[in-house]
Every structure is written in C-alpha cells, then in structure tokens.
Nucleic acid binder design. Structure first.
Lengths: 242, 242
DNA sequence: CGGTCTCTTGAGCAGAGTCAATGAACGTGG
DNA sequence: CCACGTTCATTGACTCTGCTCAAGAGACCG
C-alpha cells in the first residue's frame, strides 16, 4: 500500500467517533511517520522510559501490561487495528506500563512532538483523540468491574464478547488463525485468573454451547447466549454516539 | 469564600500538572458555574443519562461506581478535592457509570458546552485537562493490576497508600473525622473483596504494626512498611512530571 | 526427530466468601 | 437524658471458587 493511504486509515479511525473538517484532514496528512513491523512479544513501550513517539496500529494486536513485585503479570488493555498505542505518551514524562505485540503487528510511529503540535493547532483533532482516549478509560473501568466483581466464567465470557465486538466494529475480519490470538496464559493475565482455570472455564463454556474451540481458535457460537451469560452490555464502548 | 477564589482553586489544580499562561487564566476566569453541596450517597451522575455538566470538587470526596447484573457493586474511582468528576462528560452522549458523594461534598458545576468551548479556544487548558484525565486512566490501570493480581492484604494496603498520597499531594489535611472516609463495605467494593474479609485484613495490618485504627479512622503508622508490603510504587500517579 | 510451547486433566489445598450472631457507635425523638 | 432503631464493625464456623502442583498429550518448529 502506498504511504498516503495510511493517513486515510488514521482519518477514518478518528472519524468513526468524531467529526473532522477538511482542514483537519490536511493537518493530519502533514504528519510524517515511519511504518514498521513488530514481532510477537516485542516491546513497543517500556515502563519507566521517556516516550518520544506514539504508535498507531494498522494490523495485528498489541497489549499493555504491568508486573507486580511478585512477578505476576496483569494485562491492562488490548489494542486492535485502528487504535493508538499510548496516546498518553506525548503528555507524560515516563511510561507507566509496558506495551508488547500480541501478534505480529504493523504499526506507524508518530513523533510525540508532532502530535502535540497537531493537537494544539487543530481543536477538532484534539477532541477526536481525546474522545478515543476517553473510550479507552471507559474500557478500563469495565475491566475493573469485570475483574473485581464477576466470577471466572462471566469474566472470560465478557472478554470474549468485548474483543469480538470491538473487532467487528473496527471492521477487522476474523481469520481462522487469529480469532482470539491469545494463549490461555495471556487470557488469564487479562482477566486475573490462572491459565489452568482459564482452560477449565473455556471447556465449560464450550460444553454449554456458547463457544466452539479448535486448537487456539475460539469462536462464539451463541452470541446472545454468551452476552447474557457474561453480563455484557456494550454501552461502555460508546459505539453509537458521535 | 467569595466566588472568585473558586476560579483560583481550579487554576491551581490544573497548574499542579501543567503550565498555563495569563490568557489561559483569563479564559478560565470567564467560566460561569454554580456551587452546591451534596450529601453522602447523593448521585452526581447516573449511568445512562446524558451528562450536561462536569463537576469540580472543592471539598469532600466522591466515587464512581457500577453494578453488575447480579447486584454486586464495584467502585471504579475515587475523587478528592481538586479533581474533576467525569471530565469525559462533555464528550460523551451518555454516562457509563454512576458517581456518588462519599462524604458531604462541596462541588461546582461547569456547563459541558462551556467546557468544550474553553478547550477549543485554549489548547493549553485542553492539554492540562487531558493530562488530568490521563492520570485518571493511569490510576485505573493500576487498580486493574491491584485487583487482578494482588492478594487481599496487598490490595487493601495499596489502596490506603494511594489514597493517603493523593490526599497529601493535593494538600488536603486529614482530620480525625475523615482520614479514610469509607465504610469497610465501600472499601471492599473498591478493591473487590467482601466487607467481612476487609475487616480481617485491616485487623491483620494493624497487628503487623502498619496501621492504627480507632473507630472508622485508619492511620498509617509505618509508611515505608506499608508501602513495601503493598507493592506501592507511586510512578503511576505521575506526580513529579509537569 | 527431538525440543519447546501450550493445552489438558487430576488431586489436593487455601484464600476469600457466606451465613449468622453479637456488639459498638451514633442519631433521633420523646 | 434516655430508649430505641439503624448502621457498621467484629468474630466464628463452614463452604467453595479458584489456585498449586504435577504429569501427560498435542502441536509446532527448526
């Protein structure tokens, strides 16, 4: 794909949630950035370092993660194509978490300073970016509820629903290979469970006819059933409003 | 207190994290708002409703909360004086959570439209507000780690450390009456535990000499000890950077 | 074809939850 | 100033969800 189309992808992503005028488009098109590919588990951001750029995901998936002093890992967010990785970077002195590629991913790096300038010049772009980061906050709140107050079955089901819906809304077809591109250990680190228990929960969900599994692949068979069983209400994703 | 001083409080709060110039001050001083007092457990925001204003806390404490379908409650954030309640409101069509007063609280309501205008006109103010909301996101991530991967003792201790430090940084003296103005049930709803277990954990923390309790009051006796026992690293609060 | 991950399953354990009773503190009205 | 009701805190006894440990089976890769 030629370079210009990447700008279109970013504009399209912002426009999914906000309204931009032609001048905003022009300003975004002036952004200079570099595209690169990252391999699974490669770091995009490291806790403690000074972030000088902000990435945008073209393809593949990434996750943000932190470790406790006992070495336990907790995944705190997932990014899918169309999302920004750490939109906060231009405004913070140091990163407060790590970001790693979940799958092989194609990303573009945007200079933090250029992003600050863009935001200062174009209020509508600032509002669009802000809105995206606010939706990110809303998802964080939902995860707190999920991990804090739901039992293991509901928790895992809720994550499956969220991931599936976010992907669908972003228009990302789910291929056989990457339907839910996580190991059961990563799934556990996302919802606060051990991999062993995740395994048992997935087995139970399959036995209840809510999902189907084949190797690493997880497919939702009964969407309404899983949604209801998982206390999933998409309001927190703020999909409709714009 | 005369009305003008409230603007000063807001400017001071923003200036704690960001740099504003005199024109920004002028723009903030043009904000019109109403001050009011809310009683404990009164709602400031209700899930699902269209938010038309954004509140700023002058005194007292509030919390954001959501319920699961089974009726369990999870508190997802705490606001202290100097914080905004739902800075997201001007950009969302509907609230995704409830906000209630934890104690009696003094708040000012700012019209969402006026806030949008201010942000569009004054990039530095926008950056300051954005930065505050990003710090809020960072706290949400830490809570996910806390609830997802730490055991009950560490979890409770971590919350005590966070609350104590945030309050100290905001310059809010802790009076005997409201040191930690939460019931054990609310504490449990914050860290994902039952009130009964919170009670046992507090008892154990006191026996270890980390905290002291008297009625509702909880005092940290051994700050370094509690910090280390609770895996508390204040990086996520982004206090120093500005 | 061996090595490495990941998944799966069983057995036993334990941290946190549930249920229930008692007690302390506090506010209110008489 | 006291009686009463309500809300919280505290504690014990018991249960159970999810964790730990461990072994074996697939899958995948060079």
């Amino acid at each position: 794909m030629p370079i210009p189309s990447i700008h279109d992808v970013i504009i399209a992503s912002l426009s999914r949630h906000s309204v931009l005028d032609p001048d905003d488009h022009v300003a975004i098109r002036r952004l200079i950035f570099t595209q690169r590919q990252v391999e699974p588990s490669a770091y995009l951001v490291r806790e403690g370092e000074k972030p000088v750029r902000c990435s945008f995901i073209l393809g593949g998936f990434t996750y943000a993660q932190r470790l406790t002093s006992t070495g336990a890992r907790q995944i705190v967010s997932l990014q899918i194509p169309g999302d920004f990785v750490d939109l906060q970077n231009p405004w913070f002195e140091e990163a407060d978490h790590n970001v790693q590629a979940l799958t092989r991913a194609q990303v573009v790096d945007i200079d933090a300073g250029a992003l600050r300038t863009l935001v200062a010049d174009r209020p509508a772009v600032a509002a669009a970016l802000w809105r995206m980061s606010l939706i990110g906050s809303s998802i964080l709140r939902e995860w707190i509820v999920n991990i804090g107050r739901r039992d293991a079955h509901t928790r895992v089901g809720h994550l499956l629903c969220e991931f599936s819906l976010r992907r669908e809304v972003a228009g990302i077809p789910s291929t056989r290979a990457d339907h839910l591109p996580m190991t059961q250990e990563q799934l556990g680190d996302t919802v606060g469970l051990t991999p062993v228990h995740v395994n048992r929960v997935l087995k139970a969900l399959a036995q209840r006819g809510l999902i189907e599994r084949d190797r690493r692949q997880i497919r939702i068979v009964d969407w309404a059933g899983l949604r209801d069983a998982s206390d999933f209400n998409p309001r927190y994703l703020h999909l409709t409003s714009r």
